[in-house]
Write a protein that binds this DNA or RNA. Structure first.
Lengths: 175, 175
DNA sequence: TATTGTTATACTCTATAACTATA
DNA sequence: TATAGTTATAGAGTATAACAATA
């Protein structure tokens, strides 16, 4: 099996151009790898990885309205409703009407939600290590920093910028 | 509008832990940004960004069988069939039976496919710049290198490794 | 029997539109 | 009138299973 493709045509002279393409390929590989690892790690959490993200945002920062949080996580507001339904049904978060604007709702973690979250952080760490396994310690830090820098810039371009709302006073986006 | 969330609870002391989470968030932001930009750039290409990736692989490297290419791009083999159907219908690629294994098919670009591809590369460059806008020139190169390193490692872990098949003799995965 | 590619089907995820309540 | 959230519906994308041809 596996015919060992070294026999056929092979790379062409113009393969330098082909390398540029690899940003998209590499981004896809890493993203899918992370999504897969995170989904496995959070299999028992309602909503999976995004359920975790919502719980973390509700616990550790000021998530704002449902819509702001949805935008921050890159999901539709209707999806956020389903996500919060599941988390609330599981007793992990609660929706409180915002006194300032009674149309909006503020998301708060329950005691159970807070307790669960601390355990989940360890699992996330393992999943991240799996994705960054090809990098050394210093390389991982560089990669994290550059990735967050790019992401912060991209998210601030978005109108109604999400990151600014979540990270009080932090000017670097979500990082 | 926009109540300026600086008034409420704010970040908690334990926000250091929250930062670890941002790898997933940043990865999502950058990936979605890239996907969006690439989809817009390749709106008229059958299959969008992945149609481009297939066309590029068929033209500039040895894509192997449909299944190998599908694995490399992280899609199901059935999806690859639909993708190739569209590209073939548009006259961009052709499927030739593999003489060595007549179950398999080798994908080859048509003249029209080759001509289209060179024009698409420019569009891709613009899309990439958009995603990396938050990074300086040297930072972009570092980011590319680290990302490809991580992706290369991740894809070689996969059994039936995809990158090795595509990159003749290249030991660094697809990069 | 196992594998490549295809097809048909079912499922998941996401987006669209219509509705309630507040502003 | 416009907006936050909800709900129902439709759509895109994806995976599962069964099939034909070949190994």
């Amino acid at each position: 099996m596996q015919p060992r493709s070294g026999d056929a045509a092979g790379a062409e002279p113009g393969s330098r151009e082909g390398l540029r393409n690899d940003l998209g390929w590499a981004l896809g590989v890493v993203f899918r790898g992370y999504a897969k690892a995170a989904s496995a790690a959070f299999a028992d959490v309602p909503g999976g990885p995004r359920g975790y993200q919502v719980l973390a945002a509700a616990t550790r920062s000021e998530p704002g309205s449902q819509q702001q949080l949805a935008h921050h996580l890159g999901v539709d507001r209707t999806v956020m409703t389903y996500l919060l339904d599941d988390l609330e049904r599981a007793g992990l978060i609660e929706r409180h009407p915002d006194p300032a604007d009674r149309r909006a709702r503020r998301i708060a973690p329950t005691e159970r939600g807070r307790a669960l979250l601390s355990g989940l952080d360890e699992r996330l760490g393992a999943a991240e290590e799996q994705v960054l396994a090809g990098l050394s310690g210093p390389e991982r830090e560089s990669f994290r920093a550059l990735l967050c820098q790019a992401a912060g810039h991209a998210s601030t371009l978005d109108p109604g910028a999400s990151a600014c709302v979540l990270a009080d006073g932090a000017d670097k986006g979500g990082c």
